[in-house]
């Protein structure tokens, strides 16, 4: 078991290196000269060739590629990601840190909503397969996968906030502000998870041990909950876990619609402002999160599922 874990962790390291290298390359591919951009942004009135050359040397842009890459990686490990191009008195790390809590809150709330809605609905869909409940739910799932998240958000905003004046429209003052954005984000993922749980449970229902349990005369409810649901939960928890980074990244559009001040809004603003250090660090952050979460939940799944555990050791 330990060997497996160590192997997986070691396997993830080249991936991380690759991701960091891609991010580093990214900022050096931008069309404008970073030294010139830095000068312009700090409002230096007259920019001459000498000043640009000086700045390039000061920023270390004349050193070989590999050296710059290593410098950058070391800086990143010290959590020093540079300075924002648009607001030179703010650091990139500071900006990301400022916006991170809001996104985490939104992603967290959406996750909770997804779990609490998809579990029971998926469960009942499987249990009452092909009933009117199942059919309506499947139709609903179908519709929601075709609806762009931002459109749903706009419609909800208009209906709930404007027409019926039930909830605030934007910003993140109180928990009331969280309801609509979280609901919109979760709608995009609910369909996947309802389907996942339903299919998982249906598959498990066909397994032999269910047949044996039925033959033994165990009550239906007990079979459903204690056996089938528990087994289905395993795969679902892993699926949910692996999609947490996806959730964090996926709030971008909803944040834009509801003016939620999180990482997504920062990312979009940075793209429009050509604030490359922020974009680069954001991509790096999400990439690393992805690898880490995948690794973590892969290991958790192997430990938790006795079948996989046996396979591995």
């Amino acid at each position: 078991m330990r060997n497996y874990i160590i192997k997986r962790v070691l396997g993830a390291i080249p991936l991380l290196i690759c991701i960091s290298f891609l991010c580093f390359v990214f900022i050096n591919l931008i069309p404008s000269d970073p030294a010139e951009v830095a000068l312009r942004v700090s409002q230096v009135p007259v920019i001459t060739e000498e000043i640009i050359a000086e700045t390039r040397a000061a920023m270390g842009l004349d050193k070989p590629y590999l050296v710059r890459y290593l410098d950058w990686v070391i800086n990143c490990l010290h959590l020093d990601f540079g300075i924002s191009y648009t607001n030179p008195d703010r650091t990139v790390g500071g900006e990301l840190l400022r916006c991170l809590p809001a996104t985490l809150v939104l992603a967290g709330a959406s996750l909770v909503l997804v779990i609490f809605l998809s579990l029971p609905i998926g469960f009942f869909c499987a249990v009452y397969k092909d009933s009117w409940f199942d059919r309506i739910t499947r139709g609903f799932i179908f519709m929601t996968t075709a609806m762009p998240a931002y459109w749903v958000g706009l419609l909800l905003m208009w209906l709930v906030s404007i027409k019926f004046d039930l909830l605030p429209t934007s910003g993140n003052g109180s928990w009331k502000h969280l309801i609509l954005p979280a609901f919109t984000v979760s709608l995009t993922y609910i369909s996947t998870y309802i389907r996942l749980i339903r299919n998982n449970m249906l598959e498990n229902m066909k397994e032999d041990y269910v047949l044996y349990a039925n033959v033994r005369g165990l009550p239906q409810k007990s079979i459903l909950v204690k056996h089938i649901l528990k087994n289905s939960l395993h795969t679902c928890i892993v699926a949910v876990g692996m999609s947490i980074p996806q959730l964090i990244a996926g709030t971008i559009v909803v944040e834009n619609v509801f003016a939620w001040p999180g990482l997504g809004t920062l990312c979009i603003t940075s793209i429009f402002n050509r604030d490359y250090p922020v974009i680069q660090t954001y991509v790096l952050l999400i990439g690393v999160l992805f690898v880490v979460f995948n690794l973590l939940f892969d290991i958790i799944q192997t430990i938790a599922d006795p079948r996989l555990k046996n396979e591995v050791s």
């Binding site: 996926g250 990439g287 992805f290 690898v291």
Partner: peptide
Amino acid sequence: VDVMLSFPSQIMVFAVVALLGI
């Protein structure tokens, strides 16, 4: 392929657009 798949697609699209222009 592994490296590409380990990146969240949405973010990569934004990164590429940010890099190459809108």
